[in-house]
Simulated scan of single mutants.
Amino acid sequence: MPEVPSMRDHVGSLEKGLGVIEILATHPAGLTLTETAERAGLTRAGARRLLLTLVAAGYAGQNGRVFALTPKLLSLSRMWLEGTSLWSFAEPFMRAVATEMNESCSAAVLSGHDVVYVARIPGARIMRVALQVGTRLPAYCTSMGRVLMSGMTQEQLADFLGGAVIEPNTPKTITDRHEIARKVRQAAEQGFALVDEELEIGLRSIAVPIRDRQGAIAAAINVSAQSARFSVAEMETAVLPPLKRAAEKIEGFFTVQ
């Protein structure tokens, strides 16, 4: 049995610091000192010390009055993912989808303004962008990114897109923030997001959310397909059903944890 720490062994400042990290992780666009203190139940002075410590250690960055986590935190996550991964349980379901569709199936979470791949079953086709666990892609032009953003409030989404660097990857990339927001709201209503050649010409992808036991979007799972193999309509009729079934099975794991 694990040892139960006594109050003498309990490091309150570490617990508070981890709490601040968790709060910042749920606000990718960042928070001000006052917002962080309020959400963490800390004084402004206490929150300031913790935030500046995270900045000094490189785990958070400061842009004016706003504090946000940095990619350095991903180095810890990646080491953990390469060891005992929570996503290892999802791979059989993802592999079944990839085999049925003969295309890649991936899972990702949101980090900053990017999606970070946490699991991936590659397909047979060759992509311009090499993808693997730990790869980051911009959220605004990816199907998983739009699904993950669909869990945000309207205000959170506006802040998120306002702070994102949005550039065209292809002639089809949507760069108008209002139009991206409309696509995200559409994803929230439909329960999936489909992106057509916005990341790479010849590549279509469709994604659905993975929800935790509270019903919040914890991750996203997608299938990326060659546009020559699947039309936009076929992505919804042929690819979406097995993808949804896999997502439901993966969500079952979150429910029992």
Rank of each mutant, 00 (worst) to 15 (best):
M1Y: 01
P2H: 02
E3T: 11
V4Y: 07
V4C: 00
P5W: 05
P5A: 09
R8N: 00
D9G: 00
L14A: 06
L14Q: 06
E15S: 08
E15M: 06
G19Y: 04
G19E: 06
E22C: 07
E22K: 03
I23R: 11
G30I: 07
T32S: 10
L33A: 09
T34P: 01
T36A: 02
A40E: 00
A40Y: 02
G41P: 00
G41W: 09
T43C: 00
R44E: 14
G46M: 06
G46K: 08
A47G: 12
R48S: 14
R48G: 06
L51E: 03
T53G: 12
V55N: 03
V55C: 06
A57T: 12
Y59I: 04
G64H: 14
F67E: 08
A68E: 12
L69T: 03
L69H: 08
T70C: 10
P71Q: 09
L73E: 09
L74H: 02
M79C: 08
W80V: 08
W80S: 10
W80M: 10
L81H: 06
G83K: 04
L86I: 10
S88R: 13
S106L: 15
A107I: 12
A108Q: 11
V109C: 05
G112S: 01
H113Y: 15
H113E: 02
D114R: 03
R120W: 13
I126F: 14
M127L: 15
M127T: 14
R128P: 00
V129Y: 15
A130W: 15
G134N: 01
G134K: 07
R136V: 04
A139I: 09
T142E: 11
T142R: 12
M144R: 10
M144K: 13
M144W: 03
G145I: 00
L148D: 05
M149A: 06
M152D: 00
M152H: 04
Q154L: 11
E155N: 13
L157A: 00
D159Y: 11
F160W: 09
G162Y: 04
G163L: 11
I166C: 02
I166P: 08
N169M: 15
P171H: 12
K172E: 03
K172N: 01
T175K: 02
R177G: 00
R177I: 03
H178N: 10
E179F: 03
R182M: 00
R182E: 13
K183Q: 05
K183D: 01
A187N: 03
Q190M: 13
G191C: 07
V195C: 02
E197Y: 13
L199K: 06
L199H: 11
I201S: 01
A207C: 04
R211L: 06
D212I: 08
Q214M: 12
I217R: 08
A218C: 02
A220E: 05
N222S: 14
N222F: 11
A225D: 01
F230L: 02
A233V: 09
E236V: 05
V239L: 09
L240D: 07
P241H: 12
P242V: 09
L243P: 04
R245N: 03
A246W: 04
A247T: 02
I250L: 02
F253W: 08
F254Y: 14
F254W: 11
T255S: 15
T255K: 15
Q257G: 11
